[in-house]
Computed example of a mutant assay.
Amino acid sequence: MKNKPIGAVGALAIAVGGSLAAATPAQAATPAVMITLAYYNSPGSDTGSNTSLNGEYIRLTNKRTSAINLKYWTLRDKSSHIYKFASDFKLGAGASVYIHTGKGTNTSTHRYWGSGAYIWNNTGDAAYLRNSAGTAIDSCSWGSTGSYTNC
Rank of each mutant, 00 (worst) to 15 (best):
K4P: 07
P5W: 05
I6M: 14
V9S: 11
A11Q: 12
L12S: 13
L12E: 08
A13D: 07
S19K: 01
A21H: 00
P25Q: 08
A28D: 08
T30L: 11
T30S: 12
P31Y: 04
A32W: 01
N41D: 13
G48W: 03
G48R: 07
S49Q: 10
T51A: 13
S52A: 14
E56W: 01
I58P: 08
R59N: 13
L60S: 02
T61F: 01
N62P: 14
K63S: 09
T65L: 14
S66H: 10
A67R: 13
I68A: 00
I68Q: 05
N69H: 11
L70V: 13
K71A: 07
Y72K: 15
Y72D: 15
Y72N: 15
Y72F: 10
R76D: 12
D77L: 06
K78M: 06
K78I: 15
K84S: 10
S87R: 11
K90P: 01
G92N: 12
G94A: 06
G94E: 08
A95N: 14
Y98V: 03
T101I: 02
T105D: 05
T105N: 09
N106V: 02
T107W: 04
S108H: 07
T109M: 03
H110D: 15
H110Y: 07
R111M: 10
W113F: 14
W113D: 02
S115Q: 06
G116D: 14
A117R: 10
A117H: 12
G124E: 01
A127Q: 04
A127G: 15
A127C: 10
G134P: 09
A136I: 10
D138V: 11
D138A: 13
C140Y: 05
C140L: 10
C140P: 07
S144K: 11
S147Q: 14
Y148V: 03
N150M: 07
N150V: 14
C151W: 08
